[in-house]
Design a protein around this nucleic acid. Structure first.
Lengths: 221, 221
DNA sequence: CGTAATCTTAAGCAAACATTAAGTATAGAA
DNA sequence: TTCTATACTTAATGTTTGCTTAAGATTACG
């Protein structure tokens, strides 16, 4: 689980970074708004902790900017601004939670956990007769286990988590491979091919469709 | 969207019920813990607002009890208990959010909205009986799927996005084909033809009109 | 009724995708 | 650490799809 911390006060950054690392999260930090925006456009984070008062772009505008392209990633405001009006503004900008300074680290951790808890809810995903158990890290088709490699697993999981929506090649490269705008070598095709082959999808089980010149889409039938 | 309010103070119940009704939510209320538990086992709610101090079963235990069977439905605590320790307890019990009394109704509404925000939300366009689902990348006419190629899809989308405005051939070449001022080979005509044919537009469904020597226009009738 | 614009059709061609195989990196065992 | 097995990436080839062009047919409008 990869968390982005956006905060300019070095003391707080170190406090949060160390604490969350110990909780087992992967951490990236940004000390101003524009750097943070840059990062969000080129990488996928599972959660963003956002201070309100930061240089270059303030937290509120940054939140709005991120939400233009990405409505999904949870954003938690972390701030000394504590009037009702400001809280509401933050939430309206697309934040998912709002923690007022000073806060206890324990409360922060619990609020962070909430957003990972509901992710997939019961830790299982499904697509037609295919089931994925995220905690056990296994894939079943008709209750028979299918052995997938790490990347294959991630790609399939990604498609199913975005069930019903077209995933473009660029999105997939960014979110699954963490690669941006490089010359497309055709990696995705190779992996799609492997997944389809291993799942032995019949014609009537066309769960994963190719959208020519756009990307791929997963759908129950 | 169906919200369950669990609260024993009549004044607060009425205040919340009325306010949330005005926001367009369907409301059910329970004035004690066991009644609330009963309701959650027999009905599906989209969100639960939960007071901490309620008769029979307290809010914390109720929350835990609900979470045994249902990990999904968002639960928001609504309480006067405002120490950090208690907040954490609530969150650990499976709550998704925690609002301290006294709270502003506006903040409550925003926090409620957060939990409905990410549901589905596929982008759609329409033209008469034609619907385009952009995230699924499909075109429906009278709820029947019409298979279009990529360029056909782009052209139709473009026309509908500019519904009511005449699109000149040059504009279309520029915006859909990314071609500027080249000798017109008649590509557009070919694609208009394909689209009309695939959509099987009858005479009375003349959604896409030709404006002679100018371009094309899309219009609901 | 003639001309210019648009519609329709079909064939060649290019781009996108599927598939396979070979090269490169990585992780785990000895 | 080095070796080996496994997975990942790239590149090459084959296949399919659909884009483009151009030419003939039809329609709209003076």
């Amino acid at each position: 689980m990869h968390i982005l911390i956006v905060e300019d006060e070095l003391g707080i950054v170190q406090f949060l970074e160390q604490g969350l690392r110990e909780e087992g999260y992967k951490i990236t930090t940004a000390n101003d708004g524009s750097k943070a925006f840059e990062l969000t456009q080129n990488h996928k984070f599972d959660l963003i902790l956002l201070d309100w008062m930061i240089p270059k772009i303030n937290g509120l505008d940054l939140c709005k900017a991120i939400r233009i392209k990405d409505q999904k990633t949870p954003i938690i405001f972390l701030t000394a601004k504590d009037t009702v009006q400001e809280t509401i503004e933050g939430l309206k900008a697309g934040a998912n939670d709002y923690i007022k300074k000073p806060f206890s680290f324990e409360e922060l951790v619990e609020r962070v956990k909430i957003h990972f808890r509901n992710r997939g809810g019961s830790e299982t995903l499904s697509l037609g007769t295919i089931k994925i158990d995220l905690s056990k890290h296994i894939v079943l088709k008709n209750d028979e286990e299918i052995a997938l490699t790490q990347r294959e697993f991630e790609l399939l999981t990604y498609l199913i988590q975005n069930k019903g929506k077209v995933c473009t090649r660029n999105q997939i490269l960014k979110d699954v491979w963490d690669i941006n705008f490089e010359y497309d070598t055709g990696v995705i095709d190779v992996f799609m091919n492997a997944i389809r082959k291993k799942l032995k999808l019949k014609i009537e089980e066309d769960y994963i469709k190719t959208i020519r010149s756009v990307g791929y889409i997963a759908n129950d039938l």
